[in-house]
Amino acid sequence: MSAKTDGLHVRGLCATFETPRGPARAVDGVDLDIAPGEVFGLVGESGSGKSVTLRALMRLVHPPGRVEGNVAWQGRDLMAMKPEELRRMRGGEIAMIFQEPMTALNPVLPVRVQIEENLRAHTDMNRRERRARALELLDIVGIPAAARRLDEYPHQFSGGMRQRVMIAIALASSPKLLLADEPTTALDVTIQDQILKLLLDLRDEFSMSVVFVTHDLGVVASLCDRMAVMYAGRIVETGTVSEVFATPHHPYTRGLLGSVPHGGAERTMLASIEGTPPGLASLPAGCAFHPRCEFATDECRRERPALEPFAPGRSVACFHHERVARAEELA
């Protein structure tokens, strides 16, 4: 583990929040390995802990929330970093974009100022260079008439354009790792499509790694190289996108894929997952998914399955993953 020094390596990441009903583990022992230049999809439903995982990586969980675990970026331990170092890292080598750009952008500053601010913080450029670079960045993220729009305020941009502005600000520091928290969820489908394609181009251009948090399996299928599925704060399955989509080994992954309509079977029953995701403060014993799982046995009710590799590059946390995979092949 320690031999790998490039990319992002996460071991045993936990995030705990105090609630009136006792401590709730929003993220519970997450391991991730993200290679340079890779687009990694973190999929889950609301409350699965996918967004908190992303924030915990950057130690952006506010007290009284607590974060534990090891996060190594290019061989350096983010968890042990001094606040000053960490601040340089955030928005520098590691940048983040959010679902709602309006809350992440400062409404009273023109976008030029916000981009140049980031350039000043993370580069040695002088004033003139910064101006030129800000213009260049708006161009790169595909904002038409960039020169004119630089002096406009965030509210003058449409949702999609605002998202582009936020990406431009994130790119100002030429990051090597981009953390994206559902950046396209609030956008229309044609705009989402544009932004996803833009992210792929930028990944190539800046040779960054991207961790993309989303609930939309279609987005994962069209964007990511590898993926992890989260349920109730834990990763239940990982692998390359094409393998996981072809043969899911966890019943939850299988259920998620079945819940989305595929063309060609119109007006038939969807393979839904019964029940609702559990609250974090009242997780079921054993495997958190067992009350909703058609494969569940007594073992699942007693013991929690660990995330274990079963093939090169594939891991799953399920006692019955082979039965699940076979069921998928039969279907």
Binding site: R21, S46, T276
Partner: peptide, 8 residues
């Protein structure tokens, strides 16, 4: 995060 409570 929504928690479904069983009773009042």
């Amino acid at each position: 995060m929504k928690v479904v409570t069983g009773q009042r």
